[in-house]
Design a protein around this nucleic acid. Sequence first.
DNA 1: TGTACATCAGTGAACGCGCGTTCACTGATGTAC
DNA 2: TGTACATCAGTGAACGCGCGTTCACTGATGTAC
Lengths: 203, 203
Amino acid sequence: MPYSAEHKEATRERIVECARRLFNHRGFSDVSIDDVMAEAGLTRGGFYNHFSSKDDLFVEAVLSYGSRDPTENWDDIELDFTSRGLELAKQVIDAYLSRRHLEDLDNQCPMIAVPSDVARAGPRVRAAYAQLLEGMAAMFEGSRSGPVTDADRKRALRLITVCVGGMILARTLADPALADEIREAAHEMALELAQRGTEALET
Amino acid sequence: MPYSAEHKEATRERIVECARRLFNHRGFSDVSIDDVMAEAGLTRGGFYNHFSSKDDLFVEAVLSYGSRDPTENWDDIELDFTSRGLELAKQVIDAYLSRRHLEDLDNQCPMIAVPSDVARAGPRVRAAYAQLLEGMAAMFEGSRSGPVTDADRKRALRLITVCVGGMILARTLADPALADEIREAAHEMALELAQRGTEALET
DNA sequence: TGTACATCAGTGAACGCGCGTTCACTGATGTAC
DNA sequence: TGTACATCAGTGAACGCGCGTTCACTGATGTAC
């Protein structure tokens, strides 16, 4: 048994991390397997020791974001995961819709960086994207006390639309002033949504 | 002067239309110039009689959407452009966030279909995207009577975030039920935003 | 009205290049003795 | 403790293919006479 199992797993994770970063910057189609392997300090041939195809790598890259330590990205924003419910939701909104997150392509959420690529990808990639989104939904749903109601679900989906949608648009705009205008409009709206009661949603 | 100037212009417009449709379906990188020219019933060599590069074509394709007759896409939704202000805004929201618009890739707004591609493209493509967005903003800003205020501007950007952002997310999700859930959450939110007064926005 | 001509939109072969994937190999490693 | 060996992560050349772009050409067209 040459090389430990840990060695191979560590290499695989390194490749996935590099892929996620490169996809965030240049998209799925414009990043080659050569690019990814070179970034990981390897040569192209070894790729298929770890993955069955480039699509397979995309799935792993999207999913990898969900299993990261969230404090790793935004340590200086001081996310406090001991706080509960509404307070946590507000902290996540502040961090997610921050200028720092917008500009930090390396650590940006893939939901913001590659939505169009995912929309055109295969079922497994799209399932990975949905998994990230449901994770975010669960976090927002849990920001109210008591069991999750239909109104909680609806508010969570509204929050996701505003947080993710606002950031996607901000990233697309080249003019920093206009990008900030959108980002801040979305930020304010998200905070109002989180704070507001459910009255308007209970029809 | 063989061939009329109209002939060349018509061919050019046909190429742009085909490009916009193909980019909407498969994205910028995964559509080749051969694909576009073949779709237009031409061969690849003639492309450079009309455009200086593939990027140039992307600019034209994005911009082309802004100059279309809006009723062309959604004729059976009965957009009534004689109505004014708030009523028009509501009609546009209903049409933009409809399931029909989500599924009609051929006639879908490029802001929904290609945001990630634009985010990675050159300055001219991004300027074209911003132009579409500002056109939508102007329409929403004009949905209130009187001169455009800061609150009108802010509400317009909120509406864009919800309309465009919600549709981008819905397109990315493979599960039609989840896509509809997001689309309808965004739809309701947009109608509320359009209807609500400016009180919450005037800080 | 009819013909010869100049124009240039459109053709299709060719260019150099990089892609995803395959494969025969190499050499660093942990194990057996 | 030291050595011979089997394993397999990693290497790099090669595969067929399609890309964006260039270019010498062709032939449909409007014009001049």
